[in-house]
Simulated scan of single mutants.
Amino acid sequence: MNNTKALSRFIQILDGVFPSGAFVHSFGLEPHIVLDVVNDKDSLKQFLENIIVDQYQNLEFVVVKKVFKLLEEKKLKFILKEDMKYASMLSFEYAKASKDLGENYLKHIGFDIKKKIIQNYFDEVKSKNSVGNELFILSSYAYELDLDIDTFLLLWCKKSLINIASASLKISRIKPSEIQQILFEFDEIIEESIKNSSKKMSNFNPLFEEVIFSHLNLEPKMFVT
């Protein structure tokens, strides 16, 4: 499949309006806005950039690169092991949403699969022998469509940032046009961050930990559609 068709399919399945759904963890954006830490274009941009640096570079980007490598090596058992390991590193709500959405994505894309390693992995998820985290399902489908890692991660990360940033619209005075400008500015930042992602997985996010520690009554929310 050529790159144009692969991009077209990912634009479709990553659209949160479509019934395949979408979820994103806010990582504490609400309390930051309520406490006036995030209150304008610059502070929102810094918040989102911290998510990339402290969260995605150390976990999600690392996981996707590992999945692609294991798929290339056709190591199904290791993929199943990493699928479980990733789920164990997430909070309960995050892990449940990731599993539920992964299974939902599979219902929409798990047909006419050509590559045996992808079909075998999808069969294990359908048989409940693997967790089927959202990121594993999407990474596998990207590999099936011959979409390169950097392009897939750029699409996934941008989608996540859009969903998080949109949460600020109803509870802040930041203008939609300003939020759009911020998101446009992230294209090069994301590209560079993907290249400089960590070699080992870590689930320690100082931004998230600070929110939980300081604002016990203002919990970060999970957005699900």
Rank of each mutant, 00 (worst) to 15 (best):
K45M: 12
S26R: 02
K99H: 06
K221G: 07
K74N: 15
K65T: 12
E60S: 12
S214V: 05
K126R: 12
L216R: 14
L29D: 09
Y94N: 14
S43P: 10
I52G: 05
V64G: 03
F68Q: 06
I190E: 00
Q55G: 13
H32Q: 15
I182Y: 00
F208W: 04
F204T: 12
A97Q: 07
K107T: 11
E73Y: 00
I189G: 02
D36E: 15
K170N: 15
V17S: 15
S177T: 14
W156S: 14
F23P: 08
L35M: 08
I113E: 02
I179C: 00
L161W: 05
I179K: 03
V24R: 00
L218C: 10
M222N: 06
G28I: 01
D148V: 04
I164T: 04
S177D: 13
I137Q: 03
L101W: 01
K81N: 11
E72I: 10
E72G: 14
K199T: 14
K5H: 14
E192G: 10
M1L: 07
V224F: 10
V211I: 06
L135H: 06
S130N: 01
I174N: 00
E192Q: 11
L90F: 02
S130E: 07
V53A: 11
M201Q: 05
S193P: 07
S140P: 05
D150C: 10
S8V: 08
E188R: 01
H32N: 15
I79P: 07
N196G: 06
K5C: 13
D148H: 07
P31H: 01
E30H: 08
D83E: 03
L106C: 03
